[in-house]
Each structure stands twice: as structure tokens, then as C-alpha cells.
Design a protein around this nucleic acid. Structure first.
Lengths: 182, 182
DNA sequence: CTGAAACTTGAGCAATGATTCCAATTCTGA
DNA sequence: TCAGAATTGGAATCATTGCTCAAGTTTCAG
């Protein structure tokens, strides 16, 4: 069962292909055939490394969600500006993963599957972190509500930037952050 | 070619099914079989009324985009509060269409298909309208940028509310609107 | 009433989806 | 170098997809 080097490498290649396809085509375009073709691998090989399509996709989805949380060590000392900058940086420097992240966030809004719960939990954690930073800066009583609006704006701007990269994401994000400062 | 009443009725039933499926399952869950089953119709009937799956879906997508623009007559006189309230009302009173709307907005961020262009044009029109309202209220020079942040926040909040209906969408939207007022 | 146009059904088709199997090949540690 | 495990290719399987077709049923203008 212990993986050999070759296996680990093709595993990475497959995950890369899934990331790319999920980012540019969404779930519907991410077929086994497309994945294998993009990764230069045959179907049999894919199933040797993953239990199925879903598992491979979930791996990328988790990767995307994790990438949004900047080092949790800082928790409790970070400022609104830092949190904002970290998010802007994630979105702009890893647009593929960012697209996957946004897609899940929106897709989760549907019905049924529990992935909505997972994402919701992640979101609440983020709101708390932003709210704490805001409360530190600015003594307003409604820090949590301000954090919700702030995060909504950041997410909305991210979508906008992913749709049209001419958008001044960084500048607008700072504008949004400025509104809650002091 | 002139349609009979029966045809128009099943056409509506089919569009309703597409709206529901698109809203709750996204593109991938919206299959001909699912549509026909939900509409209580057989495949042949579907193809008698629509050229294909895509056409039926596009009809609903257009419906969703159009629903976001509240009466264009008012253009040039509406206030930020009114525009905000109209959007909140659309999202909360027609959540199915709203989900479709949000999904396209995000899905359009991908590559290839021209639907991204269509949505982008729609978005720009909205930004202009908000910017005009903001400029009227408040003489700030950066009304357009404020409008972009404002719209991003509204869209982000809509996503959040669709994910978790406990979210105080209306209140938070007003909070966001308040920030740009005078 | 009548007949042509519109509507409905449901079986059926080609293409594509995910997945399995297994023989052939490549690694790796001893 | 060698045995056994890991990895690989690719054909085969089985369900599902979007869509067509021919045959009947309903509608409605004249």
C-alpha cells in the first residue's frame, strides 16, 4: 500500500488537472476523460490512485477552503488591513483555486448535500476573525455585523475580479476596509 | 406554427421545472429527464416546444437577469435606498430565480462562452445606475467606485442569505447602503 | 363537422459518462 | 539481481445523456 514515487507524482499531476478543470469549467466540465487527458494518464491509473471522481474533487475543494485561512497562528493579533490584504493576495495569486473556492461557496447555497454545512462553518469562522479585528480597531458595538458586510463585499469583489480582471480588486478592497476602520 | 393553449401551458410548466432544477441543482442536475419528470411531460413533448436543452435554460437565465433590473423608467430619479430595497425584495421574494441569477454571475467567471460578456454588460449597467444614485445623494468624486463596493456587498450578502436564510439580509443591506449615504 | 396543424407519447439511438478488470510493466528494498 | 508490490494502459461494462421518430390524440378555424 505504501506509495512509490511514481504514484505520488501522477497523483499530483491529476490533482493539478482537477484544479484547472474545476476552475475553468466547473463541476460539469470536470469529467474523468478530461482529467485523465489533461494529466496524461489513463482511466485505470486514475482509479488506482483515487477511489473515484468525487474524492479527487473533494481533495481540491478542501485545498481551496484551507487556502483562504491565512496562518491561524496570528489569530487574535491581526488587523483588518492584514486580513484584507491576505485575501486579496490569495485570490489574485491563485486564481484557479480562488475560482474553485468561489464556486463552492455559491454552489453550497443549493439544497441537500452537507457540503453547505462545511462551507457555512468555514464562513462563520472567518466572520469571527474579522469581527475580532474590527472590534480591536474600532469600538463599535456591531463589529460582527460590520464584519459580515465587509466579508460580503470582499467576496463580491473577488467574483467581480474573477469575471473581469480589469477590476481594481486591491483598491476597492481597501476602500471597503477603510469604511470599517476607526 | 401558431401555438395552441395546451402548448403554451406545458411550455410554462417546463420553464417552471427548469427554474426549480437550475436553482436547486445547478446546471449539472438539470437533465432532460429531470425536467420532463418534474414537468410531467415526455421527452418528445419537450422537443416539440424547445429546440433543445440549452434554449430552455437560456430562457430562464434571461428571465433571471431581467428580474434584477427594477423598472427602468425610474432611471435617473431613484435613490440608493430604493435600489437596495428593490434588490433585497427580488432576492427574498423569488429565491429560485435569485439562485439562478447568482449562479450565472459566478459561472460566467469561467472561460470561453460569451454568456460572461452578457452578464458583464448587465453588471456595468447596474453599477452606473447605483453610481448615479450615489452621486445625487452625496457629492463624492468616487461614486463609481463606491457603487462597485456597494454592489459587491449586496451580491455577497445575497449569496450569504441564500446559503443561510437566518442571515439578516435586509438589515445588513441597509447597513451597507448607509455607509455610502451622505 | 371536419381536416390540417399542433400536441403528446414512448420506444429507441448514438454518444458519453463513471467505473472495473486484468495483463503488462516498472519500482524498490533486501 | 530478484521477488513482490505498485503502477500503468486500455479494452470492456453498464448507466445515463441529449435527442429523434413514427404513430396516435387534441385543438380550433372555417
Amino acid at each position: 500500500m505504501a506509495r512509490y514515487r511514481a504514484g505520488l507524482e501522477t497523483r499530483d499531476r491529476i490533482l493539478g488537472a482537477v484544479r484547472k478543470l474545476l476552475s475553468s469549467n466547473g463541476l460539469e466540465g470536470t469529467t474523468i476523460k478530461a482529467i485523465c487527458s489533461a494529466a496524461g494518464v489513463q482511466a485505470g491509473s486514475f482509479y488506482n490512485l483515487f477511489e473515484g471522481k468525487e474524492q479527487a474533487i473533494l481533495a481540491v475543494v478542501r485545498e481551496a477552503i484551507d487556502a483562504v485561512d491565512p496562518d491561524p497562528d496570528h489569530q487574535g493579533t491581526d488587523t483588518v488591513e492584514e486580513l484584507t490584504a491576505a485575501y486579496v493576495d490569495f485570490i489574485t495569486s491563485q486564481p484557479d483555486l480562488a475560482r474553485v473556492y468561489i464556486r463552492i461557496g455559491v454552489g453550497a447555497g443549493l439544497g441537500g448535500d452537507h457540503s453547505g454545512e462545511t462551507f457555512l462553518a468555514h464562513h462563520r469562522r472567518r466572520v469571527e476573525r474579522f469581527a475580532a479585528a474590527i472590534a480591536r480597531d474600532n469600538k463599535a458595538a456591531d463589529a460582527t455585523r460590520q464584519a459580515e458586510v465587509m466579508l460580503a463585499a470582499l467576496n463580491g469583489l473577488a467574483v467581480q475580479w474573477l469575471l473581469d480582471s480589469d477590476t481594481d480588486f486591491e483598491g476597492l478592497a481597501k476602500l471597503a476596509a477603510g469604511r470599517v476602520a476607526s
